[in-house]
Simulated assay, not measured.
Amino acid sequence: MRMGLMGLALGFAALAAGPAGAADVQAGRQKVAGLCQACHGMDGLSKNPEAPNLAGQIENYLAKSLNEYRTGERKNESMNIVAKELTDDEIANVSAFYASIQVDVIPP
């Protein structure tokens, strides 16, 4: 029984560490530089009033949104075109990059 509990604990630890093909923040930064920065900025702070800020967003939310734009489940003329060309790894990397940007909130 002790070995079973240890195996279970190790399994949970592996899940907490993330998937084997964990996202590459630097690859995400490179992809952003060529694709996303015009609207969302390299720093994740939008220069375009029509585009949201992405800095500090939750990684899973960003990945889910990009996947929905790619499949057409979520609609935005620009994002549907851009996301259609992204691979699963690129979505993971871009999401990890924007999520990794620290945002400081200063209350009024």
Rank of each mutant, 00 (worst) to 15 (best):
K31F: 13
A13Y: 07
A17F: 14
I106V: 15
E68W: 00
D104N: 11
G34K: 00
K84S: 11
E73N: 14
T87R: 00
Q57W: 04
A99I: 09
D43M: 04
L62M: 14
L45H: 06
L8G: 08
A13R: 04
I81L: 13
Q57T: 07
N76D: 14
T71W: 07
P19F: 07
A20F: 08
G44V: 01
E59G: 03
V94S: 06
G11C: 06
P49F: 00
V82F: 03
G7Q: 02
L35D: 02
E50Y: 00
N60F: 04
Q57F: 03
A55E: 02
I91E: 01
N53M: 03
M42T: 08
I91T: 01
V25N: 12
L66R: 02
A23I: 05
Y98M: 06
G41M: 08
A20C: 09
F97K: 09
S46H: 00
L66G: 04
G7W: 04
R74L: 09
C39N: 01
A14W: 13
K75F: 07
Q57M: 11
E50L: 04
L86V: 08
L5R: 12
G11S: 08
Q30D: 15
A9Q: 01
L10S: 12
I58T: 10
A16Y: 08
M79T: 08
L8E: 01
P108L: 05
A14S: 13
C39P: 03
M1G: 13
A83H: 02
C39L: 01
K31Q: 15
P52K: 10
I106N: 10
E73D: 15
G28Q: 10
G44F: 01
N80A: 09
A9S: 10
K75H: 10
F97L: 12
L66Q: 06
A83Y: 01
Q30V: 00
L5D: 09
A14Y: 09
P108S: 09
I58F: 11
S78G: 12
T87H: 02
N67S: 11
A55N: 01
D24T: 08
E59K: 11
D104L: 06
D43N: 13
C39V: 02
Q37Y: 00
A83T: 08
G72K: 10
A51Q: 04
K64S: 14
A92V: 00
L45N: 09
